[in-house]
Design a protein around this nucleic acid. Structure first.
Length: 301
DNA sequence: GGTAGACCTGGACGC
DNA sequence: GCGTCCAGGTCTACC
């Protein structure tokens, strides 16, 4: 059993990251409520598939992986967990800006700012594509089917005896080697199939280096334009990905956002995207965070 | 710059 | 069990 703890830049709250959005419900993530353990099936660059069990270590994240890890694997696991939990990130300027806003006091109290990420931006772009123009249940289903169809399995000796076969998120190569027709039929991604296949093919061929965007120094507007160059990625999806990348300048306005703003300031009357933008205009470069971590009145009831 | 309509799936609903 | 309707962002064509 490989086991280690990774320290986070304070302030840090493990559960705030786990609950930052719905990603913990999407395979190959799972979350065990009883033990507050976030698990992820990781495929290392050498092809080895392993399960990472991540728990709160108070000032960071404790990580357990069954079996011995060589140096390369160990480094990749540390790099992946550091990225997934944004352990190095600094949100002090957002917390400072939020100090005088009653609706953002929880953001300070619970150290909001970190948004749970997948190890690769490729995986997060695919998952974000699966959130567009559909219901959450279908997003989960598309992700699960993609993994079941193309993911590498966790070795049986490392998996639970009774449980279903656990698999890692597929590589771009595996998806690219398929076809839009198969993706549509087997993964049930519908009209998104050509966009998904094109994305995977570009990443697999090296013509698109999505991972470099993780550390890009491009201005956020340029980064947004790059993301929106991708087929199927529009204003909502780009804003969602920018939040994941720690660039909170834009608000991911979907139908839920319209409901939240409608009930917060317009007595439930329908609002437009412009009104959502206007409501958070004063938050400038923190618009996305102010929106995402706002203490909303409306909870869907 | 704004708007209408098509894209596709799965769930809810009525019969 | 079957058919119909609806929710959900992006893209394109059109004004």
């Amino acid at each position: 059993m490989a086991s280690f703890t990774l320290a986070a830049r304070p302030p840090f709250n493990f559960m705030s990251v786990v609950n930052s959005h719905g990603w913990r419900q999407l395979a190959p993530f799972t979350f065990d409520e009883q033990t507050s353990t976030l698990s992820y099936i990781l495929r290392a660059s050498n092809g080895r598939v392993m399960q990472l069990d991540m728990r709160d270590a108070n000032t960071g994240v404790s990580v357990n992986a069954k079996g011995r890890l060589n140096k390369l694997e160990s480094n990749e696991v540390k790099e992946a967990v550091t990225w997934m939990f944004a352990l190095d990130a600094d949100f002090s300027s957002f917390h400072k800006a939020a100090r005088r806003e009653p609706k953002l006091q929880k953001a300070i109290k619970f150290a909001y700012g970190r948004v749970l990420r997948s190890p690769t931006l490729f995986e997060d772009v695919v998952k974000t594509l699966f959130t567009t123009n559909t219901l959450w249940g279908a997003t989960k289903s598309m992700t699960q089917k993609l993994i079941a169809s193309f993911g590498d399995p966790l070795p049986a000796s490392l998996s639970e005896v009774e449980g279903p076969i656990k698999k890692a998120f597929p590589t771009a190569d595996r998806i690219a080697a398929s076809s839009p027709e198969v993706l549509k039929e087997a993964v049930r991604v519908g009209y998104r199939a050509p966009a998904l296949h094109e994305l995977a093919a570009q990443v697999a061929s090296g013509s698109l280096d999505l991972e470099s965007l993780k550390t890009s120094t491009l201005p956020t507007l340029d980064l947004r334009n790059e993301l929106m160059e991708l087929n199927g990625i529009g204003p909502y999806a780009a804003a969602n990905l920018l939040l994941i990348l720690g660039r909170p300048d834009f608000i991911p306005v979907d139908s839920w956002a319209l409901k939240l703003v409608s009930h917060e300031w317009h007595k439930g009357k329908p609002v437009t995207e412009k009104e959502v933008q206007k409501a958070f205009e004063k938050w400038g470069e923190y618009k996305g965070f102010a929106f995402w971590f706002w203490d909303w009145k409306y909870n869907g009831g």
